[in-house]
Design a protein around this nucleic acid. Structure first.
Lengths: 209, 209
DNA sequence: CATGTTACATACATACATGTATGTATGCAA
DNA sequence: TTGCATACATACATGTATGTATGTAACATG
């Protein structure tokens, strides 16, 4: 074979990313060899090295492919619901995140790899930096919303902004962790509204639902 | 060198486990080689292969060394507080788990390895089975307590036993995940009582604290 | 005190995964 | 149509982890 057109090359790149997703989900990041990824994508290792410098670059591209859309949505959601009160916005954000995890197979696969198939050892690793930034940014958004609720006297008594924020973060991280690992015991394909309502009822005074 | 006494051999075994803990925390399970573990323990790879068949056996021994005490405590806690009401027992259990994670460095290291330094790919892997059993057993305990609360009419309206149980499980898993990964952003060394109280106030009607 | 077993150390054989160097056929531009 | 850059495939060189086989010195036992 030889050179294909640019669109064809993009297809190859995409096929490699798809194959890497499945292979890394099956064997973990360190266990997924370029050889098997190449076989899955029906190319050779040469093709992978042409598109990606090494495994780190491949992983980074994988994460960015599914992750960037999420960031957009975080902000657009705040812009689309500007007149809602903070608790309602927070509720919509949580439900949207859970809904995406339940319905977007690509996103679920990448999240599964990052949470249970990736040995996060070096905090300066590009992928670790991506994940940390995502966590920090989400935390800032949640914290802002909790602060807005506090300013509007919508927090339950005894509840601080920091505690409300951390409780929400822990809940979301926990749902990701549990459902991605034990989806039969802790399925993500469910109606999350009751549980989110219960969680938020411990935090905010205004009525939900 | 040569053969030491039995107690001396036990010391060697323990030193290997300690070294493996630190090496795996630093480089991940798959990145930790027997060579570096041996160097850290001031022995050779031969010593490791004498005590453990392979890396799986080493990891399993590491997990069992810190994990078995936890199981004991789950049950002893229920026996020591038999006259308390279910929400109070649940509260004590959560706080005890969080306190242990904050104060027991060995336990924290092993949990860190399992949650962020271990590629959990094969569900039949002995370590994966250990983790799954721990999750299921914890879930059963939490579920029972929620059921007891429901039988005593202590659940908030609209809250089901299953949702209460899963919310608690997600919270705990989330705290483990967040604090083990980002302890500066989400520290585990804090007074957890307010946050646990907030969480449980969304679930149960009786007064806490 | 002679011997078998224990608790390791040493040496080697094997298997992969990685990275790179090189080959090559095709699309495209001049 | 030539020529160059692209998009791969192929081949090789290297490093590194694993497992096993063997050596060996001390301990325990009779």
């Amino acid at each position: 074979m030889a050179r294909k057109t640019k669109t064809r090359a993009a297809q190859t790149r995409s096929a490699i990313l798809d194959a890497a997703e499945r292979e890394m989900q099956a064997r973990g990041v360190s266990g997924a060899s370029f050889e098997r990824i190449a076989q899955r994508a029906s190319v050779t290792r040469g093709a992978i090295y042409w598109h990606f410098a090494d495994k780190d670059a491949l992983l980074t591209a994988m994460v960015e492919r599914t992750y960037l859309p999420l960031r957009d949505l975080q902000y657009s959601l705040r812009n689309e619901l500007p007149h809602q009160e903070a608790p309602a916005i927070l509720r919509a954000m949580l439900l949207h995140g859970l809904e995406r995890l339940a319905s977007d197979a690509h996103h679920r696969r990448v999240c599964h790899i990052l949470t249970h198939g990736y040995e996060n050892t070096d905090p300066d690793h590009p992928v670790a930096v991506l994940m940390r930034n995502a966590f920090e940014e989400s935390r800032v958004v949640v914290h802002d919303l909790c602060q807005q609720a506090a300013d509007a006297d919508q927090l339950q008594p005894q509840v601080t902004v920091d505690n409300a924020c951390d409780l929400v973060m822990a809940f979301m991280c926990g749902v990701y962790s549990c459902s991605l690992r034990y989806n039969e015991l802790f399925t993500v394909q469910r109606d999350w509204r009751p549980m989110v309502a219960t969680l938020l009822s411990g935090l905010f005074v205004a009525g939900e639902e």
